[in-house]
Design a protein around this nucleic acid. Structure first.
Lengths: 181, 181
DNA sequence: CTGATAACCTACCGCCCAGGTAGGTATTCC
DNA sequence: GGAATACCTACCTGGGCGGTAGGTTATCAG
């Protein structure tokens, strides 16, 4: 596997927060029990999410965590990056603040790294996908025409999937959904 | 990082083999010294590549490894998969032989995993990129219009990059290059 | 004001495995 | 024969993932 459970759990936490009606804070304990996840561990992740400005918190009784922004405006790229650090398919490659891709094997500019092209492409594909997928997308389920979960077509959450069509299309189809929160 | 050095080294080995004039076998020791990689470790990787049918080998003096097929017909997906095992962005998700994506958190079909959509998309993006990028692509360098290595524009290998244009386009542009090897 | 609830913080820990080493055997060329 | 090289199995080590523990603050209900 390539992402750790940090990313997995973190996204799940964010989805739970997004599901909270209005902006009511959700205690981590609730998410932990619901998802069968270790509470103490989630606390670490929540701390990172808060430092990244993705969630707000309220202490004490009736407290908990809540999304800092609308699910429409929170991309999974932000979540994953907050938890895992900067996204890189492989150790030697990373993105600098200015966006340029650097390869540690290439410090000597005499010989270009022949595999850098590959990892740059892969990184781009991953980042693009994460950036195009918002928290709201996950709440809605697969887009029309997108391969569905294939096995659990019933009992959805807030909004039901419109149609279930082709079997091969996991492209994040941009879905117009402009209703500010 | 998401892929281990197995994938990194493995691709580098394959590139070196592809660069060998004609189909002359290249000893691993040569690749190791050229790339500053540990020979003993490369041997493990070479074993996997051979079992996957990606390379052939010749023992003894003047022996070494050679590509089993043309660089045009070897995708980086095959290489990475041979070395890392089946590609999955996260532990809970994997592809079954029939191509369907399964999520271990979903064994109970009562509740669909809300994050499965995300990991399915990410996996798709990665696999598609790896499948579209062949060994030959890496030999040629960035495609015209594709973000180049940005810092080492001189001294290329066999074929020079045609032009260097926009800064943001790491899409694997299909390049017609139909010359069977 | 008291207690319960929950965020928040720091320190600690075990296990797995990536990444690499070591040493030997089998095969082929000169 | 000897050098070169693939090929195989066993072993080792450090780091980090995933988690635990225990405490301190802040907030709310009654």
């Amino acid at each position: 596997m390539m992402f750790s459970t940090k990313a997995e759990y973190g996204v799940r936490v964010m989805v739970e927060l997004a599901r909270s009606p209005d902006g009511e804070p959700v205690p981590l304990a609730e998410i932990a029990t619901r998802g069968g996840l270790p509470l103490a561990y989630l606390e670490h992740l929540a701390a990172r999410l808060r430092k990244a400005g993705l969630v707000d918190s309220r202490r004490g009784s009736r407290g908990g965590y809540m999304l800092a922004r609308s699910p429409l405006e929170i991309t999974t790229a932000e979540i994953v990056e907050a938890l895992e650090g900067s996204i890189a398919p492989i150790e030697c490659i990373s993105a600098r603040p200015d966006g340029s891709i650097v390869c540690t094997r290439e410090s000597d500019p005499a010989h270009v790294c022949p595999t850098k092209l590959l990892w740059t492409r892969v990184r781009g594909a991953i980042v693009r996908t994460l950036e195009q997928t918002t928290l709201a997308d996950l709440l809605l389920g697969p887009a029309p025409g997108e391969r569905p979960s294939l096995g659990a077509l019933s009992e959805r959450g807030p909004i039901a999937p419109a149609s279930i069509g082709a079997l091969e299309a996991d492209e994040p189809k941009p879905r117009s959904l402009a209703s500010g929160a």
